[in-house]
């Protein structure tokens, strides 16, 4: 039977035979495209457990595949390949290889929480997206994505000083993601702003970037947070079966 919805099948799984006769019926040519037969044997039975062990992924087992998450998703409206319901399905079945195919887009979740709002089963799909992106990174399937670098820089400032300073954050983020700070649109933005910003405010902003705003008496909080972060990291690595010698699959 010809396949009408070819767009739903990956090109490498489509077979067209130039010359093929089955039971005396000639099925050669384009009209009778076949799908590559597939037997899945490499289910990763630990996949769901691993995602559930990462922050945000805890409730993945509750999903009943209604699709409310994908239906309400901000990013899905821009890119139909961004499909939280499908990824949750793959994780629950343990189809790791299929999941890893989308490793370049899963991090793009914008945390708008429309999915969490719509989910009738309290899966917290937003959290699952973050956990999955983190899993891909920890397992070494992807490099650190820009959003993860931003999270790290932001959090490092908060943990160290109790507050953040946007100028420094921007500078560090652009340096670590190897983007030039003087992008056309940023220059234009600065030009528009500084053409009318009074001197006092400019001085204040300059002051803030020289003398980082901080929370007083933060030292003990900083130490407490550092201990906790180390604890969490050790636990994650244990559950994910990482031996402490860096990411591996």
């Amino acid at each position: 039977m010809p396949i009408h919805e070819k767009s739903l099948i990956r090109p490498e799984n489509l077979i067209t035979h130039e010359e093929l006769v089955i039971d005396e019926v000639n099925v050669s040519g384009h009209w009778s495209t076949f799908i590559q037969p597939r037997v899945v044997t490499d289910y990763d039975e630990r996949l769901q457990e691993e995602i559930a062990a990462l922050p945000g992924g805890e409730n993945i087992h509750r999903c009943w595949q209604c699709g409310s998450c994908t239906n309400s998703c901000t990013v899905n409206a821009i890119n139909p390949d961004f499909n939280p319901r499908y990824w949750i399905y793959l994780i629950r079945l343990g189809m790791k290889e299929e999941l890893v195919r989308d490793k370049e887009i899963i991090w793009q979740c914008v945390s708008c929480n429309k999915c969490t709002y719509a989910c009738p089963r309290d899966v917290n799909p937003e959290g699952v997206m973050k956990a999955t992106a983190r899993w891909l990174e920890l397992k070494g399937y992807t490099e650190k994505k820009p959003s993860a670098i931003f999270d790290e820089e932001f959090s490092a400032q908060v943990f160290a000083k109790g507050r953040i300073e946007e100028g420094r954050l921007l500078q560090r983020f652009f340096a670590r993601t190897r983007q030039k700070l003087l992008q056309d649109w940023l220059v234009e933005l600065a030009r528009r702003l500084f053409s009318r910003l009074p001197l006092m405010l400019m001085m204040k902003l300059g002051w803030a970037s020289l003398f980082h705003p901080r929370t007083r008496g933060w030292r003990k909080a900083r130490a407490a947070i550092a201990d906790y972060v180390a604890e969490c990291e050790a636990m994650e690595r244990q559950v994910l079966g990482l031996n402490g010698k860096g990411p591996s699959s």
Binding site: P55, G56, S111, G127, K130, R134, A148, F150, D151, E152, F154, S155, Q157, V158, G162, R163, I164, T215, R216, G217, W218, A221, I225, Y228, V229, C232
Partner: peptide, 22 residues
């Protein structure tokens, strides 16, 4: 007095309970 950052949308991706603490 002497408030700290709430962690915005970033700290929760390191660990949600740290955001709760902040």
């Amino acid at each position: 007095e002497n408030w700290n950052c709430c962690g915005a949308m970033e700290v929760k991706n390191i660990d949600p309970k740290l955001q709760t603490y902040l």
